[in-house]
Deep mutational scan, measured.
Amino acid sequence: TETREFDNEEEARKEAERLRRKGQDVQIRKKGNRWELRRT
């Protein structure tokens, strides 16, 4: 599992969408005042 953190939700969602188009399974969750993007 690979995780990346983003400062805002929009960036996290854009990156998640990009990875999903490549066929990756991605989850986003709020972590304090940041957003965590998890690739499984």
Rank of each mutant, 00 (worst) to 15 (best):
T1Q: 12
K22G: 09
R29I: 15
K30M: 06
R21Y: 06
L19K: 01
F6S: 00
R29D: 06
R34W: 04
D25A: 12
Q27S: 12
D7S: 06
E5A: 07
L37K: 02
Q27K: 06
L37D: 03
T1H: 13
N8H: 05
Q27E: 14
E11R: 03
N8G: 04
R4I: 14
L37M: 04
E15R: 01
N33K: 06
A12T: 02
K22F: 12
K30Y: 04
A16D: 01
A12M: 03
L37N: 02
E10N: 07
R39P: 15
E11K: 04
G32M: 01
V26Y: 09
G23W: 03
W35E: 02
Q27Y: 13
I28Y: 03
R34I: 14
E36L: 07
R29W: 11
K14E: 13
G32I: 00
R20D: 02
K30S: 04
R13T: 10
E17P: 00
W35M: 01
E10P: 05
E9L: 14
T40R: 11
T1M: 12
L37E: 03
L19Q: 04
R4K: 11
K30N: 04
D7E: 10
K22V: 10
K31M: 08
I28P: 02
G23F: 03
N8C: 04
W35T: 01
D25R: 11
R20V: 05
V26N: 03
E17M: 08
T1N: 12
N33I: 04
R39D: 14
E11T: 05
W35L: 02
A12K: 00
T3E: 07
Q24T: 08
R4E: 09
Q24A: 10
R39F: 15
T3P: 11
D25L: 13
R38E: 13
E11Q: 07
R20S: 06
K22H: 12
T40E: 10
T3V: 13
R29Y: 14
R39N: 14
R34L: 11
R34Y: 08
G32E: 05
T1E: 12
E9G: 03
E5Q: 09
E5N: 06
R21E: 12
A12D: 00
E11S: 06
K14G: 07
F6A: 01
V26H: 03
R21F: 07
R34E: 03
N8Q: 05
K14H: 09
K22D: 12
E10G: 07
E9Q: 06
A16S: 04
G23D: 03
I28S: 01
R13N: 11
I28F: 03
E9F: 15
E17V: 07
R20Q: 08
K30D: 02
T3D: 08
K30F: 06
Q27W: 11
